[in-house]
């Protein structure tokens, strides 16, 4: 079951579970090759970025990837600028845009939007977030960062901390870690515990995991700490939000117990969950993580468009 570039050409990227372990590793290898790529394999290609929901970080990361590879991006950054405000169906919009572009990046507030778009167009569709459902490129970036920072992806001990209930990035990463024989520790207030269906996924995939009340004592043997922010918009009661938002704060004091090789990841933006004093530590990988995102997205775009091989090795 050897993977080649051909396996990616023209493919849609809707959920992480569409990809096998070998395919993910192939993508990460390609991303490593693209980290310092200066060629322009996307020259003459047009990438359409339809962002029906604002997401500055993801959009900029993709636009940077397109620009660095010599491609052109078109599109809009929020639904207000699109014909959706005039009541146009998504399926109509994507069929129109298909004629303007070679690949479609789609972010949409409704779940399943990317799968639907992919059914209506022949060009590759990349899901850049569909509601609370999936955001596969974030997960690829997380995996790339873990491997890049830890030097391996197999057998890592990963601690997740913060909002494990609503965090889409956490759910997606948790679901894929089973492919890499990870050990998992979950640290959250009980209100923000990882939902049962995802705990069952861990169990049924044979992942060893435990739930711990305390971050500090969980760090001693951890390779990766995946911090998340508690999002205000998840709470209907502002007092509830105030109660949970600062439950876990990572500062130098908490970090004392950490092993030397610990890498701290965060999908960003952060609020107070990581103190600024941590930023200067070698553990702090979250800004590098954002930067790796461009390499991973460059690799993905080039693979889907069948031009990844045009880069000199």
């Amino acid at each position: 079951m050897r993977v080649s570039e051909q396996d990616f050409v023209g493919r849609d990227v809707i959920t992480v579970s569409d990809f096998r372990r070998e395919e993910i590793l192939f993508l990460l290898d390609t991303a490593a090759r693209f980290e310092n790529e200066t060629g322009t394999p996307l020259a003459g290609r047009v990438i359409a970025a339809l962002f029906f929901e604002a997401s500055t970080r993801t959009r900029l990361s993709f636009e940077s990837a397109v620009g660095r590879l010599g491609g052109t991006s078109i599109g809009f950054a929020e639904a207000g600028a699109s014909s959706a405000t005039k009541g146009e169906n998504l399926s109509d919009t994507v069929r129109v845009v298909e004629g303007y572009s070679d690949l479609l990046l789609l972010r949409h507030p409704l779940e399943g939007a990317a799968r639907l778009a992919a059914e209506f167009v022949d060009i590759p569709v990349v899901n850049c977030g569909d509601g609370a459902h999936q955001h596969p490129t974030q997960t690829f970036v997380d995996l790339y960062t873990m491997r890049r920072e830890c030097g391996r992806l197999d057998g890592l001990h990963v601690v997740f901390c913060g909002d494990l209930r609503f965090g889409r990035a956490v759910h997606s990463l948790v679901s894929v870690l089973a492919l890499f024989n990870a050990r998992v520790t979950l640290v959250s207030p009980s209100f923000l515990r990882l939902p049962a269906e995802h705990r069952h996924t861990l169990e049924s995939n044979g992942v060893i995991y435990n739930e711990a009340p305390d971050l500090e004592s969980s760090l001693a043997e951890a390779d990766v700490l995946y911090m998340t922010r508690v999002q205000r918009e998840r709470f209907t009661d502002p007092l509830e939000y105030e109660r949970f938002k600062d439950t876990y704060t990572l500062d130098l004091n908490v970090l004392k117990r950490a092993s030397d090789q610990l890498a701290i990841l965060h999908p960003l933006p952060r609020v107070n969950e990581i103190a600024r004093e941590v930023d200067g530590q070698s553990h702090a990988a979250y800004f590098r993580q954002a930067h790796y995102g461009v390499a991973v997205r460059k690799a993905l775009l080039a693979l889907l468009l069948g031009v990844a091989g045009e880069v000199p090795k």
Binding site: N89, L90, S91, H108, P109, L110, E111, G112, A113, R115, L116, D130, G131, A132, H133
Partner: peptide, 28 residues
């Protein structure tokens, strides 16, 4: 908030488990 509702298309499902029958939406 499944896309099938706003687009007015019929859903697609697969049976994820049998007892009790559980269907999973192909979209969301």
């Amino acid at each position: 908030v499944c896309i099938t509702h706003s687009e007015g298309i019929r859903g697609r499902f697969f049976v994820a488990s049998h007892d009790p029958v559980t269907a999973a939406c192909e979209y969301c």
